[in-house]
Design a protein around this nucleic acid. Structure first.
Lengths: 138, 138
DNA sequence: GCTCAACCCTGTAGTCACTACGGAGTCAAG
DNA sequence: CTTGACTCCGTAGTGACTACAGGGTTGAGC
């Protein structure tokens, strides 16, 4: 007997039980059969599918992208060009985000460690008060 | 005459007009006086304050943090210890986020460029299907 | 005087990906 | 028979906006 309750599926897949219901609501997980009292009963395929979703989320894919990936995975004969396009897009987004954050990091580092005894001379507050420099707009 | 309408303030500060109303609603911007017909009239101080908020947002501060920073900036005699603590906290968060994204980047790079003609052999889909490796959980 | 565009107002709902809650039913162990 | 763990459902909350519906006002041009 391999049938799982929501709680058991949550534990097995590493996805919160409320999130599982949410995925079902938005059509990312198929509606499982119910027992006599209305409780959901999942098979092992649900564990696989949820694991797929979780790992894709960990790679930063949006749920809509994951919907596409699941669709692609369901057609084993299709070329994986489309999946690769999603990876490339995601990779570009991640790299852009890293660059943004590194600029942020540099800006914050230049403001850190100000121990002025008066907020009037605090480097951070000064920087935030200043008019934008026309040369350094991005 | 330096009084500004919402649109003019939006243009002058680089903050969307709807966002200005939103900031007013959540108490980040004080309610400005109104003209006879109920239109908002802003002074130059609103431009300064909104510029402060926008630059702090660009540094990744949450609106609640910005509230604290504005509070600190309003008390020029207070030591800037608290502002510095916020910078340190923000810097730590940014650095953690960069590390996460770099791990993501590496994972995506290892999955990119798969030109398999069958999704069944797509590196991405394979990776997403696979059981977690117990050694590489984070 | 009339029309039109460009403003302005308010309040509410939508976004994303959940998370939390309220209020109720079910079930097994002690 | 009660307790506690689980289940169900629907709704509302999160952050930081953004968009919309449904109006009112203003100024320019015809």
């Amino acid at each position: 007997m391999r049938e799982l309750s929501t709680k058991q599926l949550a534990d097995a897949s590493g996805v919160n039980g409320e999130t599982i219901r949410y995925y079902e609501r938005i059509g990312l997980l198929p509606e499982p059969p119910r027992t006599g009292n209305g409780y959901r009963r999942y098979g092992q395929d649900a564990v696989t599918r949820l694991g797929f979703i979780r790992r894709a989320r960990e790679l930063g894919f949006a749920l809509d992208d994951i919907r596409s990936l699941l669709e692609l995975a369901a057609h084993p004969d299709a070329p994986c060009r489309d999946a690769d396009a999603l990876v490339q897009r995601q990779l570009a987004a991640v790299e852009a985000r890293i660059r943004d954050l590194q600029a942020l990091q540099a800006a914050l580092q230049s403001l850190a460690g100000c121990n002025s005894t008066a907020a009037a001379h605090c480097r951070l507050l000064e920087a935030l008060d200043q008019r934008d420099c026309p040369d350094c707009r991005h």
